[in-house]
């Protein structure tokens, strides 16, 4: 029982099947009271399905789910008083003002927060009298958060709160979500942006193809996949021809044809390489060793190699490695 008391969400072996497709294939998830957890994964990974099962908006095929100590399959109005939900791509009725919509929704709860206070919380006080159709994307999202907060919930779900936003709108939404922390609200948010998860959450749970593939802080996740660093330099400064064989083999995959010709080691190949590629990059985990070898090769070739740069693995690299999604082009 003491376990239940500090767990806002507890999910064991959750499954959801649509015909032949298993959208959620055995998810385990726990969120402590007061924690902000990001549920990270690519589109179609099962994030929204899972969250909507927790919100009692969808039924599940099997598994155990407890949200605030209640099985959502037996959700009551009393239970719904305690949760706040921001759906993906939330829209509002355009003919109402922000304040009117909040007031309208406050009637749904037993002891709602005052409208002015809610608008203040999400930074929409100035836009209180603005018709929602004239609000920006970021403002619309903050209004959706306001509606989730009006009932003074213990737990808030946010489904992809910034998808499709420009950087400024994203920043706005982040500020609002950061603000939830000071209210002591437990938050489960879904996102397919690693940097968003890193910025907003205490902990990141990664889902891919309906399964949890990692769970931890951003540095922990990075350590878990141990992604290599990128070492790069200007092609004009040092040709791969001058490199020892071992380093040539580390040349990045997309320079494959360059690598092949560099291995041939002809003068003609060298000139071609210089024309075609501006920078060369090596991918390695042995950063120190490789840099020493590179500098030795550079010295032998008589170049200072001032253009040398070492880039540690990015959050995106970690994310792509975790989710096994090599084709994702919409990160960041």
């Amino acid at each position: 029982m003491s376990d239940e008391a500090h767990l806002a969400i507890e999910v064991t072996q959750l499954r959801k099947r649509y015909g032949e497709v298993e959208a959620v294939a055995g998810v385990d998830l726990s969120v402590a009271t007061g924690e902000v957890v990001a549920f990270l994964g690519p589109n179609g990974a099962g994030k929204t399905t899972t969250v909507e099962i927790l919100e009692a908006l969808r039924t599940r095929t099997s598994g155990d789910v407890q949200v605030l100590g209640v099985d959502p399959a037996e959700a009551t109005a009393d239970w719904r008083e305690r949760i706040g939900v921001v759906l993906q791509g939330a829209k509002h009725e355009g003919d109402f003002t922000a304040a009117e919509i909040v007031t309208m929704w406050s009637a749904y709860y037993r002891s709602p927060r005052p409208t002015a206070e809610v608008l203040e919380l999400v930074g929409l006080a100035e836009a209180a009298g603005t018709r929602t159709r004239r609000l920006s994307g970021g403002q619309q999202q903050r209004l959706a958060v306001a509606l989730a907060l009006v009932g003074d919930p213990e737990l808030v779900f946010l489904d992809e709160p910034t998808t499709g936003f420009d950087p400024a709108a994203r920043r706005e939404a982040w500020q609002t979500i950061d603000g939830l922390r000071s209210l002591g609200v437990t938050v489960l948010l879904t996102t397919h942006y690693m940097d968003e998860a890193d910025h907003l959450a205490d902990r990141i749970v990664v889902i891919s193809r309906g399964r949890i593939v990692a769970d931890g802080t951003a540095p922990e996740l990075a350590a878990q996949v141990a992604m290599p660093s990128h070492i790069s330099w200007d092609a004009a400064e040092l040709s791969p021809v001058a490199l020892p064989d071992r380093l040539r083999d580390l040349l990045r995959g997309d320079d494959a044809s360059v690598r092949a010709r560099a291995a041939a080691g002809t003068a003609i190949a060298e000139r071609q390489i210089e024309r075609e590629v501006e920078r060369f990059a090596l991918v390695t985990r042995d950063v120190g060793e490789v840099v020493r070898e590179l500098l030795a090769a550079a010295e032998a070739a008589g170049t200072p190699l001032d253009s040398l740069a070492v880039q540690p693995p990015t959050l995106e690299d970690t994310y792509l490695a975790l989710t096994g999604d090599t084709s994702s082009g919409d990160c960041s």
Partner: peptide
Amino acid sequence: VIRRESGVLKAMRATPLP
């Protein structure tokens, strides 16, 4: 239908309003 397609009805279902 407008409320349904814009997701307003769905969001409303997540509130205690019967």
